[in-house]
Structures are given as structure tokens and as C-alpha cells.
Design a protein around this nucleic acid. Structure first.
Length: 374
DNA sequence: GCCCCTTTGAAGAAC
DNA sequence: GTTCTTCAAAGGGGC
């Protein structure tokens, strides 16, 4: 049984493109109009199926995502962690999500909900601060921007995890166990390939979870914007990624995973690795498509034949996913390369689903993935 | 101790 | 409208 199964009570029939499931429709609660209907947390997300009274008795619905470390979706750095405390919201949540106040106002200074329980998405300003909540001198010195004071007061509300991140959280432990790898960069490479090897149905589950997560996040923090977190990290350089390909990384691995490494060793010549898998009829069965992850377009299905190298890491929309406005862009830079020289079983975890269409994607050779010349 | 690496996806900024 | 950038998680490694 798939670990998600207990959480996913909805079926794929909810994934009619363009028509979000009714239980996810904005009419559940419109923060702007303040429609009075109080959504039960279970309506908002599979992460919130519990009644408040059940808190503390029933494991966190996302426990499967973080079974190994007992962590939670949005850990509160600074010591206190709680399993998605939004679960505790019922009436308070209603008032919270309907509030027009910004999250900074809604939430208590230290990331506490009105319930007194911090939401896991909130990382209080105590991030890298002293336990008492005051910024350490170092943190103060490093606080970017002129609004240090304001920044101190603002709880750090993290971005909701996307589908792949949810998948990573679940699968990381498995990969680590199988490969004895610990370097996250290497693990993530494996997970990235596994992600592509997932069946549509399996990916759809994660997309749906991620979508609900986003929806709930937006309802919990109506005023939150991803931009709020800009600058929280030091600007990361992207240029180096060009040179640091997976191939390089795999060579650096001191503890190679035999289960996955061979596939990379099989990559000898990019030019000789195209074709065989492309014979698979790309079953667009695409009927299965979540609103967040519509079926691929014709151009996308045709693209795997392209020999163009992966220009960059952006917008690599998976089989299910398609950018909202990428009808044209999807045909160029974002199509993964076929990786026909590898057997799917080497890349994929055992899965009952292996649509041929996936085969086009699951075999993306990281060693062949290069960024376009600058 | 901080940042990089590495992955995909979402969102915002920039053009 | 398209492209680019940043941040989500994770933990070893480098400086």
C-alpha cells in the first residue's frame, strides 16, 4: 500500500482539469468576501483530518513524510515543534483564515496561533536567534535589509512544500537506507529521478497534497507572499550548477549507492542513448490530470525526442505538471531528455504503474543534463 | 558557523 | 508573455 493511501481519500476523478474539486473550491472560504462557511480542517487538507480533541492522540497526518526524524512540515526553529498545529483549529481557524489581517498581525509574535500553538509553517524570528527570542548579535549583524526591527517581529512563515518536496520528505529515509548515502545532494538526485519514474497517479497524489497544502497555507496566512521570504537566505549563486553536474557529483560520492550508481555508469555517450525508449507510445491517457497538473500537451510529448540539452533547472514540469501559462514555453527548454540507455527498473522503485509515457521522463540522464552555454 | 550542493515546483520579479 | 530568481527540505562537505 502506498504510504499516501491512508491520507488520500479522494480519487483521481477529482482531477478534472480546470475544475478544482468542490471541496477545494475557494467557496469554502473566501478570505476576501468572508463567506461565513466554516471549513472543517479536513476539507482543507488531508493533513488536517482531526478534530481538535484528537490532537496529541493521533499521529500527525504527515507523519509518513517525516517518519525518521519526527519532524514536521514546518518545524519551528528555536526549540518548539509541533505537528502542524493548524490541526487544532476549528472555529479559531475560521476566524483566522477569514481575517483580513496579515499573518504578522494574525499571529503572535513568536509564531503562535490564536490557539497558542505555533503553526509549523511559522518559523519565529527566533530562527538562528537566542532561545529567548532575541536576535543574537551575529544574527542581528546578518539581518539583511534596513527593516531589521520589522524583520525581528515577523515570524518566518515558510513556503508550503511543493509536490516534490513532499515526495522527498517521504522517500528520503528510504533512499538513505538503501544507499547508505547521507549527502543530501546525492540523495536528491536519486529522488529527482525517482520522481520522474513515478506513475501519474502517484505523482498526482503529491500534487494534490501540495495543492491542498498551498491552499491551506494561503488561508492560514492570507497576506503572506513568497516574497516575504526573499532575502532570508543569502543569495545563492546559480552559475556553478552548470559545472557541478550530477555526473561530477556522483564521482565525488564516497559512498556510492550500488542500486543507483550503475545507471549513471551506463551513460557513456549521449549520442548513443537516444531512441529506444522513445518507441514507447506515450500514452497520454492524460485524462488523468489534476488542476495543478494538467495533462501534457502534444508538444511536450513530442519533445522528448529533442536532443537539446537541458538548458537550465527551471520549469521542468513533470508529466503531470504544466505551468499555468506555458503552452508555448513548454515546448522548448523544459522538456527532459530521454534516457533510453537506462533500464527503467534501474531508475524506478518497484511500482505497479509504469506508463510508457513516463518512460520518456524517468530516464532523464543527469549526466547528460547540461545547461545551455551561456 | 555559514554556505554550497542537488533536486522539482511555486511564486514573484524582471524583461 | 516569457524568462529569471528565490525558496522550500536535507545533511554532508568545504571554507
Amino acid at each position: 500500500m502506498h504510504p499516501l493511501t491512508p491520507l488520500i481519500t479522494y480519487s483521481n476523478e477529482h482531477f478534472s482539469p480546470g475544475t478544482p474539486p468542490s471541496h477545494l473550491s475557494p467557496e469554502i472560504l473566501d478570505p476576501k468576501t468572508g463567506i461565513p462557511r466554516t471549513p472543517h480542517p479536513s476539507e482543507l487538507s488531508p493533513y488536517y483530518p482531526l478534530s481538535p480533541g484528537a490532537m496529541g492522540q493521533i499521529p500527525h497526518p504527515l507523519g509518513w513524510l517525516v517518519p525518521q526524524q519526527g519532524q514536521h512540515m514546518y518545524p519551528i526553529t528555536g526549540g518548539f515543534r509541533h505537528p502542524y498545529p493548524a490541526l487544532a483549529m476549528n472555529a479559531s481557524m475560521s476566524s483566522l483564515v477569514s481575517s483580513r489581517f496579515s499573518p504578522h498581525i494574525v499571529h503572535h509574535p513568536h509564531g503562535l496561533h490564536q490557539t497558542g500553538i505555533p503553526h509549523p509553517a511559522i518559523v519565529s524570528p527566533a530562527i538562528k536567534q537566542e532561545p529567548n527570542g532575541e536576535l543574537s548579535p551575529a544574527a542581528q549583524a546578518k539581518s539583511p535589509g534596513p527593516n531589521k526591527k520589522e524583520d525581528e517581529r515577523k515570524p518566518h512563515i515558510k513556503k508550503p512544500l511543493n509536490a516534490f518536496m513532499l515526495y522527498m520528505k517521504e522517500m528520503r529515509a528510504k533512499v538513505v537506507a538503501e544507499c547508505t548515502l547521507k549527502e543530501s545532494a546525492a540523495i536528491n538526485q536519486i529522488l529527482g529521478r525517482r520522481w520522474h519514474s513515478l506513475s501519474r497517479e502517484e505523482q498526482a497524489k503529491y500534487y494534490e497534497l501540495a495543492r491542498k497544502e498551498r491552499q491551506l497555507h494561503s488561508q492560514l496566512y492570507p497576506g503572506w507572499s513568497a516574497r516575504d521570504n526573499y532575502g532570508k537566505r543569502k543569495k545563492r549563486k546559480r552559475d556553478n550548477k552548470t559545472d557541478s553536474t550530477a555526473e561530477d557529483f556522483s564521482m565525488r560520492n564516497k559512498k556510492p549507492c550500488m542500486q543507483y550508481l550503475p545507471q549513471e555508469k551506463m551513460i557513456d555517450s549521449p549520442g548513443s542513448s537516444h531512441g529506444s525508449m522513445l518507441d514507447s507510445p506515450a500514452t497520454p491517457s492524460a485524462a488523468l490530470a489534476s488542476p495543478a497538473a494538467p495533462a501534457p500537451t502534444h508538444s511536450e510529448q513530442a519533445q522528448p525526442l529533442s536532443l537539446t540539452t537541458k538548458p537550465d533547472r527551471q520549469h521542468h514540469y513533470p508529466v503531470l505538471a504544466k505551468p499555468p501559462s506555458s503552452s508555448s514555453s513548454s515546448s522548448s527548454s523544459s522538456s527532459p531528455l530521454p534516457f533510453s540507455s537506462l533500464h527503467a527498473s534501474l531508475l524506478s522503485p518497484p511500482s505497479p504503474y509504469h506508463h510508457s509515457h513516463h518512460a520518456l521522463y524517468q530516464s532523464q540522464p543527469l549526466s547528460l543534463v547540461t545547461k545551455s552555454a551561456d
